[in-house]
């Protein structure tokens, strides 16, 4: 598996750590109801197909990426910087 880092180019997945579903970017407000925090921490769509995930390029530029990947085939279709993905909404 290779991941196209926007800063470093196409790199081996060994350089990255997967954090999991990119829903973790949508952090609830500190005073949000407990149910929102439960959903944020625990509940997942867990799709069998296309997904958006957070990967950390620890063995490269140190950036957090949002990686588009297919969980059924392991095909990676793209990656953007997490900071930009968040601004894009």
């Amino acid at each position: 598996m290779q991941i196209p880092c926007p800063l470093c180019g196409l790199r081996d997945s060994r350089e990255f750590t997967c954090k999991g579903d990119a829903v973790t970017l949508d952090r609830p407000a500190a005073d949000a109801p407990a149910g929102d925090w439960h959903a944020y921490l625990h509940l997942r769509d867990n799709p069998a197909g296309p997904t958006r995930e957070l990967w950390y390029h620890g063995g490269g530029c140190g950036a957090w990426l949002v990686v588009m990947r297919n969980t059924a085939t392991h095909a990676v279709s793209g990656a953007v910087l997490a900071s930009e993905a968040r601004h894009a909404g």
Partner: peptide
């Protein structure tokens, strides 16, 4: 496949495959 089958009942599970 728990997440897919539970989704048929409208549930979202605390599970990742």
């Amino acid at each position: 496949r728990s997440s897919q089958v539970a989704a048929m009942a409208g549930m979202r599970l605390p599970i990742e495959s």
